[in-house]
Amino acid sequence: MKQHHTFSIVLPAFGAAIIAALAQIVIPIGVVPITLQTFAVGLVAAIFKPREAALAGLLYLLLGAIGLPVFAGGGGGLQSFVQPSVGYLLAYPLFAFVTSRLTHATAPIWKNFLAFVLGDALVFVGGIISLHFLGNMPWSGAIAVGLVPFIIPDLLKGLVVALVMKPILNSLKNHSYFQ
């Protein structure tokens, strides 16, 4: 039991590290770049239990807030939380929790894909809201720059998460946490 407890404490740190590492893969396309952050959050959510997945997202935000360069392209610090794109970041713990809650190792790929899409949609809602209010964009502009360019890339990310989730969980099935 103690090993399981220790593991569930360490797991969010590992998840935050995965998110931070994949956040460094950036394709600049405008106000909001394409990154692998949402892929990382979705993958963590698909593999971890809801509590640990959400804590990984919160820890990631905390690491960035204290100034570690964990956000896209090496960003970090409190100034990151007043940027027009902060809504995306703030939605990560909710994305992780919801997606984790809805994904299951025994579910068909399409259900796990839909779980990713639903969680990812929460990120876009947060991002569009912050682009509108902090970026002083009209709603149509916030949607045009904060959602439209990401539809295809994020659907592909969700598909990859849904496809790799079961093989990853199968490789981890000997640990009691993943059973």
Rank of each mutant, 00 (worst) to 15 (best):
D154M: 01
V10N: 07
G146H: 01
P84M: 11
A142G: 08
H175D: 13
K111S: 12
L159R: 03
T99H: 08
T106V: 00
F113T: 04
L11R: 04
Q83I: 03
P50V: 02
G73I: 06
I66W: 11
T106H: 13
S140W: 12
F178G: 00
Q83E: 15
G67V: 12
I152W: 11
G15M: 00
I34D: 00
P149D: 07
F71L: 10
S80Q: 15
L102V: 09
V26F: 06
A91P: 12
L102F: 14
L58G: 09
L172M: 12
Q179Y: 11
K111A: 14
G57A: 09
S176R: 14
F150C: 03
F178Q: 03
D154W: 06
G75S: 13
L59W: 02
I152Q: 07
G64V: 02
T6E: 12
L169C: 06
L122T: 02
A54M: 14
L68D: 03
K173C: 10
T38L: 13
L78N: 05
V70R: 03
A91K: 06
L172N: 12
A21T: 15
A107D: 08
L131H: 07
I109N: 00
A91V: 03
G127Y: 03
I143T: 11
F95I: 07
V82C: 00
P69G: 05
K166S: 02
G87P: 08
V148Y: 14
I129V: 15
L62W: 02
I27Q: 12
Y60Q: 07
I143G: 07
L134F: 15
F150D: 04
H5R: 14
P167L: 06
P167A: 04
H5I: 15
L58R: 00
F95M: 15
Q37W: 06
M137A: 13
G74V: 10
A45R: 02
H175T: 07
L59C: 09
P28H: 08
A162D: 04
G77V: 08
A40M: 04
V161C: 09
I151D: 05
L118Y: 07
V26Q: 13
F7T: 12
V123I: 13
F113L: 14
Q37I: 09
T103M: 15
L58V: 15
R51V: 09
V117D: 06
N112I: 11
P153R: 05
A54H: 04
L114G: 02
H5A: 14
F124R: 03
L156G: 05
I29E: 12
A107Q: 12
R51F: 09
N174E: 15
I18R: 05
F14G: 01
P12I: 02
Q37A: 10
A56D: 04
A23L: 11
V82G: 12
G127W: 01
L131A: 06
A21W: 00
F113A: 04
A17E: 05
L94H: 06
L59V: 13
Q83G: 02
F81N: 05
V44E: 05
Y177K: 05
G77S: 12
A144G: 12
A53I: 04
P84Q: 11
P153E: 10
F116N: 06
S176I: 09
A162V: 04
I129F: 10
L58T: 10
V164P: 03
A96Y: 03
P108R: 08
